[in-house]
Nucleic acid binder design. Sequence first.
DNA 1: ACTATATGTAGGATTTTCCCTACATATCAA
DNA 2: TTGATATGTAGGGAAAATCCTACATATAGT
Lengths: 109, 109
Amino acid sequence: MTADHVFTALASPARRELLRLLLDEGVQPAGRLAERFDMSRPSVSEHLKVLKDAGLVAETRRGRERLYRLEAAPLMEIRDWLSPYERFWRDRIGGLSDLLDEMEDEEDA
Amino acid sequence: MTADHVFTALASPARRELLRLLLDEGVQPAGRLAERFDMSRPSVSEHLKVLKDAGLVAETRRGRERLYRLEAAPLMEIRDWLSPYERFWRDRIGGLSDLLDEMEDEEDA
DNA sequence: ACTATATGTAGGATTTTCCCTACATATCAA
DNA sequence: TTGATATGTAGGGAAAATCCTACATATAGT
């Protein structure tokens, strides 16, 4: 459930696709999700486990199937991690921070 | 330089730390960056290469050293990827989308 | 030219990830 | 109870990531 787990979970295209499916199509049982992949069902199940450990999905048991739903909250951590960088690429267009960076660099020149 | 490369690059704590150092302290030569890590200098060099391939850093040669600078633009892609999920976790507090998700789920009930 | 410095690359050992095929478990339906 | 369905887990093999120690290359300084 740490930020590290979240970054790791997002590193896999298959897992990002799982999140997308849950976002676009809502809660679904594991089997229905697995159908969409060019991969064995147990492998998809493993990916779901990684997502669950990262807190990105939650499961609810309904009869013999398990419904997975998106838990987007951990993505807030990614957003928070990202935000300090926004300033940087916004300013680069103006070129001001470029100048500042150059000056900073002169420290060891 | 694809989004996939960026996600992969961000999956490593060492590489995220490199980005943070460049953000907080500005342009630096490879050696000064490597000093901060509990890891061999060549390993840090490899991490820098991964970041460079992802477009997250750029290098400039100055004499015998290579200055690395942050290139935050690819992080915009991450931000874009993230944005569709914002709606989701914002709404969950109100509980409205929970209801909608439940309804969507009833499709196959 | 010669030595020291800054850095990337090669090659390899270890660990981790990814994906598969069995198999176990639980539930549903007759 | 019996058989089918839905799903997770075990075990293992192949591929990729990670990190290391040499080594090669280029520049700086004397």
